[in-house]
Amino acid sequence: MATTTTKPQTPARPLRVIVAKAGLDGHDRGAKVIARALRDAGMEVIYTGLFQTPEQIVQTAIQEDADGIGLSILSGAHMTLFPLVVEQLKLQGVGDIVFFGGGTIPNDDAAELKRLGVREIFTPGAPLSNIITFVERECGKRRELEG
């Protein structure tokens, strides 16, 4: 697992985000680009590496005290693995962690995943700036609620 430190922040602790790959999917280009982009935007990013189970991903988020989890799936297994992460978040009592994702995911599948509790799905071509804005806004809201 690779943890990176970021440039010095304002007094508030920087947002912490897990970027995760699940299942047997080795396509990690997108995940790595997103991880770098979030880091360059001032967040602390923990990239899980490949082949994680939903349990492992949620465990990592808890251990790292993360504000958000971004899951990348390009193998077609999204309708199985995203719901399993949602389930784990609830089971472990951390349903407030901002869970979002991306990959080769058709629109109707994305709509279904959002209905199941995934906060946002980004598909190929989504501007990095949109992803950064989303993560800052949603994770920021969670922080405020946390106090």
Partner: peptide, 22 residues
């Protein structure tokens, strides 16, 4: 598919959700 490429049979827990997809 991914399980075949990674050396797992289709009934392996590792193959969950990936069988026949790619």
């Amino acid at each position: 598919d991914m399980p075949t490429l990674m050396g797992y049979d289709s009934d392996s827990p590792k193959a969950l959700g990936e069988v026949g997809k790619c």
